[in-house]
Design a protein around this nucleic acid. Structure first.
Lengths: 126, 126, 126, 126
DNA sequence: GTGGTCTAGACCACA
DNA sequence: GTGGTCTAGACCACT
């Protein structure tokens, strides 16, 4: 478990991303309680304030809910997960394709490149 | 032609990206002269300092060269273009796949999603 | 009957508000016994401590009275109801008008807006 | 110019409210620059961080835009103002009426109460 | 100069 | 215990 943050992006948003993905991957499930801001602060060794901002961010997206005096929980409105997963997927693909087009790659080259990469990868695992 | 920059990313790097892609796409060719810092500043309505930094950035990657008193030119070492194109493509793909995996998508889902997107897109153009 | 509390306001005060309004509306009458702290806690699925605080709050305003060992009752000093109703009405109006003024609405616009709303509403019911 | 904040509500949101209303009232106009976070911090004697949060909040609503390295400005998309004004008005009215209904007042009583209040007020000014 | 992030440490209200 | 707010002070990148 690597807890170091890098990549110019703000820590709070890197952390938010990480948690969001844990939820979308199903590692954190509907209703699960997140560690308290203080606990999480220690876990990833950042200031509780920073964790707080992360949680606020996640709440803003609706993937997390905070219950007064009890803690922060993964939302129980499960539709949100599937919606968000699908949306992020579409965004990811469209952004990827757009970037490739801007570099002058054709659809065929993009598809071929991806196939090659995936094949390569799955062979690496064997 | 909209020249407004947004997206939290620094303007100088957005501009650098844009120019880099124009070169990789072949719109700007080996030996072409870029607009002067001042001209470019007016063109995209941005502070000359910012353009300056953009050019420095591009020079750092080796894709443009500054000739004292003459201006900034697209490099004539054409090998750089192909290398860069290939490298950016690989990076793009790998990052894309990584992001998808982090959200829990399998290789099959990724490939299928891309196919669907590309098909959709080419139909839209008809 | 939904008993979920939200809206950043503290639960105890949301609950107090609700009960207060039930009394002012006449649903709970002079001398009526409120559910015990525990019962109410179950009814609205809230911690008994929180209900406790709600009752304390209501007692502070004089609208309920606690009789040792017997429970909490709607006060029998009925003058309090009418006073409170009138006072809350005035406060509500004055606050409403103040807010509108702060947004730059004239008295005429406020009056017109209210008329329109009420008309609209009563038509909706038909 | 009173610069003291009270009312249990967080300072950053009170400040945001105040600025929002200044904009809606037309005291701050499209394209106007807000005081820098530091200046504003001194002006209203709160910590710059708190002002920052205020500005972030306002930006979130879209009523303000921040230009990197230049400052925070009232948005130039003027449609937002009228939309927001109208929306806040409707919300204000509907909330007001709802509250009154919950206390058992009829539409007629509400309208009469408001008329009386407004009349009283305009006479007070004479 | 500007906004943005982060920390450390304090205090508060809610449950 | 929980999250939320606020301050003071530091550092950073962008323009």
């Amino acid at each position: 478990m690597t807890d170091t943050f890098q990549s110019s992006q703000p820590i709070y948003s890197q952390l938010a991303d990480r948690i969001k993905k844990q939820i979308l991957r199903g590692e954190l499930k509907s209703g699960d309680k997140l560690p308290s801001v203080r606990e999480m602060g220690i876990l990833v060794s950042v200031n509780p304030n920073t964790v707080q901002r992360t949680y606020r961010e996640l709440e803003g997206v609706g993937i997390v809910e905070t219950k007064r005096g009890q803690g922060t929980f993964v939302t129980e409105r499960e539709e949100i997960f599937t919606m968000m997963r699908e949306q992020l997927k579409q965004e990811g693909i469209s952004q990827f394709v757009k970037g490739m087009h801007e570099m002058g790659y054709s659809n065929e080259e993009i598809a071929a490149g991806l196939q090659a990469f995936l094949k390569n990868e799955s062979e690496g695992k064997k």
